[in-house]
């Protein structure tokens, strides 16, 4: 694999061909906030918090660094007024769903996000897909998945699989960026009321 050279926040970074901007930045010690990223899982690009600004053909463009492949001689900025503004908005929208998440609260402090900006609709899920993808890709059990779409999208356990696998695993609970108990709640609901959850 060939090495490529790019510039992140003014710092020269060498990266392997094909890795994402996020991995390139992190390998150089530059931190980018993420919620849906997990090193064991395929890039997903759900939370959009890891956006960065890149310079191409004279202009700048906002891309999602966890799914954007590093390119030769690319100039990347991980913080700017525009990025901070967008990240603040993303955090405020996510806090309408998960107002008491510690991770979100810490990030909100950094970016000056107001947790009460939008009317709260606490579903405790920001659709990062970590539990769903971890179960499918790492554990290969597919006990939990998404159902429905848009504003009604939520996670749902398959009772038949969950009753056999989940109590001895529970590895998806601590992955949750909003509230580790959310998956536990949905799991118990699926096991207690198997008919209602499908």
């Amino acid at each position: 694999m060939s090495e490529i050279l790019l510039k992140i926040d003014g710092q020269e970074v060498t990266a392997k061909q094909g890795i994402t901007l996020l991995d390139a930045a992190r390998s150089a010690g530059i931190s980018i906030p993420t919620l849906c990223h997990h090193e064991k899982l395929e890039p997903y690009g759900a939370c959009r918090l890891c956006i960065v600004e890149i310079e191409t053909r004279g202009g700048t463009r906002i891309v999602v660094s966890c799914v954007y492949p590093a390119e030769k001689n690319l100039i990347v900025r991980t913080r700017s007024e525009k990025i901070d503004r967008i990240r603040k908005m993303i955090l405020e929208l996510q806090m309408a769903h998960a107002p008491d998440s510690f991770i979100l609260q810490d990030l909100a402090k950094e970016y000056g996000a107001d947790r009460n900006r939008f009317e709260k609709e606490a579903s405790f899920c920001i659709h990062c897909g970590l539990c769903v993808r971890y179960c499918a890709e790492v554990k290969k059990k597919n006990a939990v998945g998404f159902i429905d779409r848009g504003i009604r999208k939520e996670i749902s356990f398959i009772p038949e699989i969950a009753s056999k696998e989940c109590w001895k695993c529970k590895e998806c609970f601590p992955l949750c960026p909003t509230e580790a108990l959310q998956a536990a709640y949905v799991l118990v609901e699926a096991l207690a009321f198997p008919q209602a959850s499908t």
Partner: peptide, 25 residues
């Protein structure tokens, strides 16, 4: 019906979560 979805999952070797996602989407 649920039994039909189970049969489809078994024959096509597709996880039930995926079928549920599509059927509700």
């Amino acid at each position: 019906p649920g039994e039909v979805l189970e049969r489809v999952a078994e024959r096509l070797q597709v996880p039930m979560t995926r079928i549920q996602h599509i059927a509700t989407f």
